[in-house]
Amino acid sequence: MKVQIETMNRGAMMVATLHGELDHHAAENVRGTLDREIEATKVDCLILDLRGVTFMDSSGLGVILGRYKKMQAISGELVVTSLSKPVERLFEMSGLHKIMKIYKDRETAIKALKEVTK
């Protein structure tokens, strides 16, 4: 099973929406696709919309943290939105919720990030 990724560019921002089960099997493809998009678009803000993630485990946490570090390395930012209850629980257990910004949905994230860059 593959995780489907839809991306949408909004100036310096990119919204990537993930659909499917984010486990170790899916991780490699998600990592490759997101890294290619980050490099090709040169955006400095990646909004990862997890609304379609129906299952996630610690392999998913690893991919998300990896992309967060990648964005940081290019002085960019990664934020996540639309976490389901179980995904939110994993973020809390691992401390990721203290590292990256979490928004309830993409609209809120886009608005908040626009205000920052204004």
Binding site: D57, S58, S59, S94
Partner: peptide, 22 residues
Amino acid sequence: QPLYTSRPELERSGMGFTIMES
């Protein structure tokens, strides 16, 4: 231990055991 992984180059989070136990 939470966050321990022997394979950081594979972007492992080291949270597997902690999650399983809880």
